[in-house]
Structures are given as C-alpha cells and as structure tokens.
Amino acid sequence: MTTIDRQLIGYLKDAHALQQHVQAALSELLTAAADEPEMCGPLGRYAERSRAHTRAVEARLRAHGSAPSLVRDAGMLFAAVVEGGLGRSRRDPVGRHMRDAYVAVHLQIAAGEMLRRVAERAGDPETAEVAAAMCDDASMMSRGLSDRWDLAVDMSLRQHGVRDVPPPPGSGK
C-alpha cells in the first residue's frame, strides 16, 4: 500500500467518524427543535443525506480493503454524547445545539474537501465524488442553518420563558 493510499484511508476513517458526530449533533438539535417544523424539515432531510453519506464512505473503505475506525468513531460519539448530556444538564437552549450543528457541518465541509483532494491525487474518482457530495450537502445545510439563526434565538428565548420578544432589527416584521 502506498503512502497516498494510507492517507486516503485515514481521511475516509476521519470522514466516517465525523459523520457519526454530525448525526449525533443533528439528533440533539432535532430533539430540541421538535416543535418547530421550519427547523425540523430541513434538518430531517439533511440527517437522511448524512446517513447516506456514511454508507457511501463505508463502501469506499471496503473498496480499499478497510473498515471504519472503531476508536475514532467511539471518540466522536463519546464527545457528542458528553456534549449532549451536558447540554441537557445545564438546560442548554436550542441555540447551543444550533451552534454545535453549525460547527459540525463546517467540520464536515473541511473533512470532505481534504478527502476529495486526496482522493483525486490518489486516482480514486469514486471517493472524490462521495466527498464532493458530502461537501455540497454540508454547504447547503450551513446556508440553511444560517437562515435560521433568528428562529433559533426565538426558540431559545421561549425555552427560558421570554415572551413578546421584538423582531430582529431590519426584519421588517
């Protein structure tokens, strides 16, 4: 196995672990925003796409004679569970979950970009295509989350009993 092949497999394993983390972050946000269809609809669709990307990454690992890294996956899942548990114990508002999901999709973009570029250099167009799809979907989700910051703030304030909040400046509402 060449050095670039080892690098490619390492990036695939990282992408798989990150997919696990993103799914956990999305699950927390979906739970926190269960009563907001404007938030849950796009998040639910993205969660489905994220699971599909996870399966695609697993297939690419198998194509290279490898498998996901249980240690990396467990580490990412442990971090997500700890974050989620701390959020509940501190009565974290949906805003914190929104922030975590936003960060997670940007990590996904970065991991996907690195994976795509290494795959292209390794002559693996199938993996490059999987990585590009991950990046495209994560970029779209990033924009979708960005469009919902005010909704997340409203939801967070409502969780803490704040009512009759004026609309954001410049919103025309």
Rank of each mutant, 00 (worst) to 15 (best):
A17L: 09
P167H: 11
E126D: 08
V71L: 15
R88D: 06
A33R: 02
R91N: 08
G112S: 07
V162S: 02
D124I: 11
Y11V: 12
E48W: 07
L77E: 04
M140H: 10
G75T: 07
A74H: 03
R121H: 07
M98P: 01
Q159M: 11
D136A: 15
A110M: 07
G84M: 08
R6Q: 11
A32Y: 06
R148M: 06
L86T: 12
R158S: 08
A133R: 10
L115D: 01
L86C: 12
D136H: 12
V130P: 00
A15N: 03
E28N: 12
D73K: 11
A128Q: 03
E83D: 04
A24Q: 02
S66A: 15
A32H: 06
A152N: 02
H64S: 07
R148C: 03
V162K: 05
R49L: 14
P167T: 08
L8D: 02
A152K: 03
M141S: 04
G41S: 09
S66Y: 09
G10W: 09
A133C: 06
R121T: 11
V103Y: 00
L30M: 11
P68V: 11
I4Q: 03
R121P: 01
R62V: 15
L77T: 14
A131V: 06
D124M: 09
W149S: 03
G84S: 10
H106D: 02
P42E: 01
S156P: 02
A15V: 11
M155R: 10
V130W: 04
C135Y: 02
H16Y: 08
V57R: 00
M76K: 13
D92V: 14
H106R: 14
R45K: 15
G65M: 11
H64K: 12
D100Y: 11
T54N: 04
